[in-house]
Nucleic acid binder design. Structure first.
Lengths: 130, 130
DNA sequence: CTTGACCCTCCCATGATAGGAAGGTTAAAG
DNA sequence: CTTTAACCTTCCTATCATGGGAGGGTCAAG
């Protein structure tokens, strides 16, 4: 399988596949005589795994850990769970921060007439010393 | 006022102040004979405004628009409100996406024993074709 | 044998921020 | 007056994940 086909069936771009190889997230693939990378189904599975983890907001560093756990038949599920839970805590924090932002903005926006007049509480709100 | 003092009272680092100048977000400041940037209270206000907007998740491009509205005594508050509301919609989307991620992870994590055994539903979940 | 769709490597860009090197300036303290 | 410490300057580099493009080689079908 050439890289383009793998890209299609894993939803990871060729750019990214080569990049993941270059940073050691996936192994270097064998090449044809002319230098084309050759892949197998196994590689598609791994890339799908990576893609899915990215979609769930894991960083490549976290994914690196997940992959090594995935590869390791001896790992304890507790290790995986720990990683997942720390990521959940991370997500909770980011959600809370965004929600705070949103609420502040909504408050400012609802107090704004939104008409042709230049006076706007949003700008006052932003200008206020925090 | 030198740049360091401005940085302290606006909570924007000297690095960032120079950067904002270089990308044209703030005007180039006058200099002393020896080349030191000189600032006034007005500049501190503007930087605080920028800082606060950053804290609310506005991008520098959005802030560029906000600043030009702030500077313009003729602007309509409707313009500002429109900007704020589009940003709120943006935040809502990001919050929803993160919440989805979180929920998926929580589901996976609760179904994981988290013990010494190697079998882990989290990894199965990640490996499943999306 | 040409054409078009692949593939290769290498460099550059994004957005927001930070770190550091190498060197000039200022103010206070000796 | 000189030393010293805390400032300031510019310029280069890095981060993280991704994408764009140039310039060139390869492969399969018409």
């Amino acid at each position: 399988m050439n890289i383009g086909e793998v890209a299609k069936s894993s939803s990871v771009s060729t750019k990214m596949i080569r990049h993941y190889e270059s940073i050691g997230l996936i192994r270097t693939s064998p090449r044809t005589l002319s230098g084309y990378r050759q892949y197998h189904d196994r590689d598609v599975h791994l890339l799908r795994f990576i893609r899915r983890a990215r979609d769930l907001g894991f960083s490549l560093e976290q994914i690196r850990q997940l992959v090594s756990l995935w590869d390791d038949p001896e790992r304890a599920s507790a290790d995986v769970k720990r990683l997942a839970q720390s990521h959940i805590a991370d997500l909770d924090q980011r959600i809370a921060a965004l929600t705070d932002m949103r609420d502040t903005l909504v408050t400012l926006a609802t107090s704004c007439q939104g008409d042709h007049r230049p006076d706007c509480p949003i700008l006052h709100g932003l200008a206020a010393a925090s």
